[in-house]
């Protein structure tokens, strides 16, 4: 018995020695987008913010683009669980494993550090559109199934799933037109080729200021701080709330002490001026959720989209 206690104590000491010094070497932040993509900007800003709050080791952003995050996730899983490889995540963490056949990882293979905010998803129409409110749009779609053309960011993307879910709970049928970039969707909306789009605020803010587009609704649980006049889909009776969350994770199995050190640094970084300016500029809704609470959000999120995504493949 005493032996076991001594052994445990010894292991404990060894263990704490092993990561007492974390971080002892440069830390890699993995972005699953190419340089310039949304997740890349997020990771580079985070690295810079960690630097400004005095993170004791150099930080490097590594781009591992491909397969909507699948390549990045696989890359991090191939690294040791020591906290020296951080993955920048968005809601693709949920979508990609569900839509990629044979993909072996999910969010359960990662240990959350924190979520720092989210992009709300808006339903947007051109300002010369006949739809003044979200009810107009849905009622028209109800009367004319399949005639309302909704531009989204590619099949199985969060835009698409927001649209699919709205169609499902409102009992209507949209005609989804997939595009490769936000610029193409917006150009098609302004050119009158599509009737509505699902977008993030940063994509349409300039047009909104110029009065070229109108926002009908937002797909969040509560109204958005920056646009308090925009109704949520939920308050109209359609329970669709799928914001694009953003955060950071490490591989599952990283020692709890290391995760805690990382959480402390990350919280400091996220609260820094550099990072707050980024949130402001990208029109992100700040929402600091740390550690296991983030996991809870992920579990709920997955449950909310699982049915829609499985229906996608049929």
């Amino acid at each position: 018995m005493r032996k076991a206690v001594a052994l445990a104590a010894l292991l404990g000491i060894l263990g704490s020695v092993a990561f007492a010094g974390y971080p002892e070497k440069p830390v890699e932040i993995v972005a699953w987008a190419s340089p310039g993509g949304g997740s890349d900007v997020m990771c580079r800003t985070f690295a810079k913010a960690l630097e400004t709050v005095g993170f004791p080791q150099p930080l490097y952003v590594v781009n591992k683009p491909g397969g909507s995050g699948a390549v990045g996730m696989t890359y991090v899983q191939g690294k040791p669980a020591d906290g020296y490889t951080i993955l920048g995540v968005t809601n693709n963490l949920i979508f990609t494993p569900l839509t990629t056949p044979g993909f072996q990882y999910s969010f359960r293979d990662f240990e959350p550090i924190l979520m720092f905010g989210y992009d709300p998803k808006y339903i947007v129409v051109a300002s010369n559109s006949r739809y003044q409110t979200i009810e107009d749009l849905v009622n028209f779609a109800k009367a004319h199934p399949g005639e309302v053309k909704v531009g989204t960011f590619g099949p199985g993307s969060d835009d698409h799933v927001v649209g699919m879910q709205l169609a499902q709970v409102a009992g209507v049928e949209f005609n989804f037109i997939p595009f490769d970039s936000g610029g193409e969707i917006l150009a098609s909306l302004l050119g009158g080729h599509i009737d509505a789009q699902v977008a993030e605020l940063s994509e349409v803010k300039g047009q909104l200021d110029a009065g070229a587009v109108r926002i009908l609704a937002v797909a969040t649980a509560e109204r958005v701080r920056t646009l308090p006049d925009v109704p949520t889909l939920k308050e109209k009776g359609w329970d669709v709330a799928l914001p694009k969350f953003r955060g950071f994770m490490v591989k599952k199995g990283t020692p709890a002490e290391v995760v805690q050190i990382l959480i402390d640094w990350a919280v400091k970084a996220v609260q820094s001026d550099v990072f707050q300016a980024y949130l402001e500029a990208q029109h992100l809704e700040p929402a600091l959720v740390v550690g296991p609470d983030f996991t809870k959000i992920l579990v709920d999120y997955e449950a909310a989209v699982k049915d829609v995504l499985q229906a996608l493949g049929q």
Binding site: G146, P155, M164, F176, A311, L312, G313, Q314
Partner: peptide, 9 residues
Amino acid sequence: LPFPSFARA
């Protein structure tokens, strides 16, 4: 290859 229903139109 599957032909998902949402795109069949």
